[in-house]
């Protein structure tokens, strides 16, 4: 949940970075064209500065898009105490480790909850 809050906070910057990057790239193209057609050095100096700013924005945007948030799911493994047959399913809550989990579909033996664990999956920041 804290990861989601952080992602939500960072996601707000996405349009800002995108618009900023597009604007600076257009401005950069304008400066470069001006330099090519006029040959004035101040356009070159300004285009270098704008280029650096565009690179910074592109880097920030890439960093934002690379951010992954973990999503957790809960699993349980039930095992037959006689034949060792195993089944894995989602743990919905309230499961108890080493408690009886019915009878084995293969041999009819006692099945117990052998493992309960959380599984991590990564999701992109934009969902």
């Amino acid at each position: 949940m804290s990861e989601e809050v952080l992602a939500r906070m960072r996601r707000k910057f996405f349009p800002l970075y995108l618009i900023g990057l597009l604007a600076s790239l257009i401005f950069l193209a304008h400066l470069v064209l001006n330099y090519i057609y006029t040959g004035k050095e101040q356009y070159l100096t300004l285009s270098m500065l704008t280029g650096l700013f565009s690179a910074y924005l592109a880097y920030s945007l890439a960093k934002l898009l690379r951010t992954k948030i973990p999503i957790y799911s809960y699993r349980k493994v039930v095992r037959c105490t006689q034949c060792g047959y195993e089944e894995e399913a989602e743990a919905k809550g309230g499961e108890i480790l080493f408690e009886n989990a019915g009878s084995c579909p293969k041999c009819g033996g006692e099945m117990i909850v052998q493992k309960i664990y959380r599984k991590k999956q990564l999701k992109g920041i934009l969902g």
Partner: peptide
């Protein structure tokens, strides 16, 4: 501090579901 907050946040999830 954030590490600790994340740990406690995980505890809330675990205790509300009653999982180990």
């Amino acid at each position: 501090i954030t590490e600790e907050v994340r740990a406690l946040e995980g505890a809330i999830e675990a205790f509300s579901k009653g999982l180990p």
